[in-house]
Nucleic acid binder design. Sequence first.
DNA 1: AATCAGTGCAACCGCCGTCCA
DNA 2: TTGGACGGCGGTTGCACTGAT
Length: 374
Amino acid sequence: MGKPPCCDKDGLKKGPWTAEEDQKLIDYIQKHGQGRWRILPKNAGLKRCGKSCRLRWTNYLRPDIKRGRFSFEEEETIIQLHCVLGNKWSAIAAQLPGRTDNEIKNYWNTHIRKKLARMGIDPVTHTPRLDLLDLSSILSSSLYHSSQLSLPSLLGIGPFVNSNIQNLVTAFLSSQRKTSDNTCQYLQQNQFDNTLVGNHQFQSSQPIQPSAIYSGQANQLHSGPIQEIQHCPASSTLSAPFQSEVPQLTRAKMEHLSPNLAYFSSQNSPPNLWPNIGERPDHLVMGAIPNFPEFDSIDPNSENHVLHSNIEQIPDFSFDSFITTPSSSSTPLNSSATTTYAICSSTEYERDSYCSNSLMYNIPNSLNASGLRM
DNA sequence: AATCAGTGCAACCGCCGTCCA
DNA sequence: TTGGACGGCGGTTGCACTGAT
């Protein structure tokens, strides 16, 4: 089936590379540069296929590769980006200088995924496993009787993604629906606002247990600063099919974000996409469409690097694309999954127990100080 | 000391998109 | 327009290593 592997050609070696082969490859690339992988092995005197040479170079021999254990911040970045991008390892790797997509992929599969699974979090959706939770009643109640439903939490990413990721999602949703209903726009703006305000609450008070979100307390989480929305019937905001799928909402298909996020990789000094939550930028006021995705300017005077964009430039996203398949998991949400999040420590053991701050509602200062990250 | 299961990671595989003649 | 070359990507495999028994 299909064309045979390139390495099946006679005489081509497979398997681990020897030091001699490595040196030949390094010497050749230093002399001639990379590329032209098809002819490289022949010219370099290697009995390898070009593809193997390219992989060896990009994943191992490249001089700018950072080896060794992933740092805490790198791990956080991976988790957060994966929450948005999914298995777009190359896009994630673009945000982690010196790390290859292969390395990140391996790290995810061997470390992070297992940790999340241990915690009862679906590593695919980044949400607690909801199988036994009757969210439909929660959500239908929220949709029809409350204006305080947080769209990010509805999407199932709220508790695990910092405010900017939530903003990205909200912005996309806003852009998708902005032309359909002015009153909906009003709602979306409030949702966006709520995200910020809500996170401020989180930061200034105790972290909210994710279990609160998923046990029907979501309405309480955003109480207070949130204004009542009187004019936007749920049906105009969420289509009927959407409502019908609400209990299965798990992960926003944010592959669409990749082109936009890829923008960051072209920057030498990536802007901080994860500003301090809770300190709402002045110009992100009611009535302002959330800025996304061009990120054409960064407020240099603010610790909160505000991302500007022109909403009109957002590509045509299908709202349906944000509604994805249900969780693949069948494990019910358990109590351990909801208590671990609040624990935060720097010890190795606890790190392995997955006390990543990325799972907290309040993003630590260290995250900002790291200069992250996209 | 021997065995075995679990883990981590480099390397491979197959598919896909882009480029260009 | 078409098809081959090329490179990138995500998924998977295989093996070396490690720790438990």
